[in-house]
Nucleic acid binder design. Structure first.
Length: 310
DNA sequence: TAAAGACGCTAGTATGGGTA
DNA sequence: TACCCATACTAGCGTCTTTA
C-alpha cells in the first residue's frame, strides 16, 4: 500500500473528513502558484478555510509539498489526491462499521438490559424508532418526552437538519439554554466514540488490553484536534441513527452539514476561550500525559532558566 | 456505469498456558 | 527458563453491493 493511503486515513480522521481531496489539492496549488500575490481578502471565507486545510495536509504528510510542487503532470497530482482520498474514505468506512455494533453497548449501564433490544447488524430499529437512541438524537431544546414531538420525529414530519445538534453532544444529556457551552461536546458517549476510534475499542470501557497500537499511536497523535472531535461526533451520530448508508450528501442524516457546523464553531475566533478550555478537557480525557506546547528543553534555554533563578 | 460505502477476511502483534 | 501454540485484539485490504 502506498504510504499516502496511510496518511489519508489520519488526515480524514483528524484534519478534515468530508472534503474533496482533488479540489483541495488543485485549489491549493493554484493558491500557492498563480494566485500567491493576491491579498488575503481577495479570497472568500470558504476559500480561506479550505487553504488552511490544505496547509495542514502538507504539514501532516512528510514530503508531500515537494512531491506536489515538483510533479510534472496533472495526472500525478490526481493520483496523489486519489490515494489520500482512498485512505480517508476507507478509514471512515472502517470506523462506521466498527462503531455500528460497539455503540449498542454504551446505551445503558453495563449489566443493564436494553429494552427493547437493538440489533447489532441492522439499523432499522435505531434512530427515532427506539426510545434510547431517539432520546439521544433528539435535538437540544426539543422535548423528547412529548409524545406529539416523538411522533413527528418518527414520521419525519419534524425533520432534523445537520446544524440542529442532538442532545447526546451535551454532558449528562442536558442542554442549558442560558449557557449553550455548558457541557457541550463533553458527553460520555462522545468520549467513548472518540476512544473507540483513536485509542482502540478496548480502551473504552476498561483498561486497554489491545495487543496492537491504536490509531493515535500509529499516527503519532498526542493531542486531540478540533476536526477529530467533530469526526467522532459525526460517527457517533450516524451510528445512533437508523440510516444504513453513510453519505455526505444524504438529506436524512445531513452528516456533512453536521460535521461542518461543529467545525465552524470550534474554529470561530469569537469562541476561542471556550474552545481552548474544551480542547484542554479533551486532552486530559484522552491523553492524560499530554503537555500543551511541550518541547524538549534545549541546553541553552535550560541554562537561561538557571541563570534567571539566580 | 463509475463512485461510494459496507462488510468479510487477513495479517500483525501481544499474551497466556502448556510442555520439555 | 525457553519455546511453541492457541487465542484475543486490532487495522486495513479486497470485493461485493448499492446508489446517483
Amino acid at each position: 500500500t502506498d504510504p499516502l493511503v496511510h496518511h489519508g486515513r489520519h488526515f480524514g480522521r483528524t484534519i478534515h473528513a468530508l472534503c474533496n481531496l482533488h479540489a483541495l489539492i488543485n485549489n491549493g496549488i493554484i493558491r500557492m502558484g498563480e494566485r500567491s500575490e493576491e491579498p488575503e481578502d481577495a479570497f472568500t471565507a470558504q476559500e480561506q478555510r479550505e487553504h488552511k486545510v490544505f496547509i495542514a495536509l502538507l504539514k501532516s504528510v512528510p514530503g508531500l509539498e515537494e512531491r506536489i510542487m515538483t510533479s510534472d503532470s496533472a495526472e500525478e497530482v490526481h493520483n496523489i489526491a486519489a490515494l489520500l482520498q482512498k485512505g480517508a474514505s476507507s478509514a471512515r468506512s472502517d470506523d462506521t462499521k466498527s462503531l455500528k455494533s460497539a455503540i449498542i453497548d454504551w446505551l445503558v449501564p453495563v449489566g443493564e438490559p436494553l429494552v427493547p433490544p437493538i440489533s447489532r447488524n441492522i439499523k432499522i430499529d435505531r434512530g427515532f424508532n427506539h426510545e434510547k437512541t431517539g432520546a439521544l438524537l433528539c435535538p437540544a431544546g426539543v422535548d423528547w418526552s412529548d409524545p406529539e414531538i416523538k411522533d413527528k420525529l418518527r414520521s419525519s414530519e419534524l425533520s432534523v437538519s445537520g446544524d440542529q445538534w442532538p442532545i447526546f453532544l451535551y454532558s449528562s444529556y442536558t442542554y442549558d439554554e442560558m449557557d449553550p457551552w455548558e457541557g457541550l461536546l463533553r458527553s460520555a458517549i462522545l468520549v467513548k466514540a472518540f476512544k473507540h476510534i483513536f485509542t482502540s475499542p478496548s480502551s473504552v470501557c476498561r483498561e486497554a488490553k489491545a495487543t496492537r497500537s491504536g490509531n493515535a499511536r500509529i499516527h503519532g497523535m498526542t493531542s486531540v484536534t478540533r476536526a477529530s472531535i467533530a469526526y467522532a461526533a459525526t460517527q457517533a451520530r450516524f451510528a445512533l441513527s437508523s440510516s444504513s448508508v453513510f453519505s455526505r450528501t444524504d438529506t436524512a442524516t445531513d452528516s456533512e452539514r453536521f460535521y461542518n457546523s461543529i467545525l465552524e464553531v470550534l474554529e470561530d475566533p469569537d469562541e476561542a476561550d471556550d474552545v481552548n478550555a474544551l480542547l484542554a478537557w479533551w486532552n486530559r480525557q484522552i491523553f492524560p500525559n499530554y503537555i500543551p506546547n511541550a518541547r524538549p528543553i534545549s541546553k541553552d534555554s535550560a541554562l537561561a532558566k538557571i541563570k534567571a533563578k539566580r
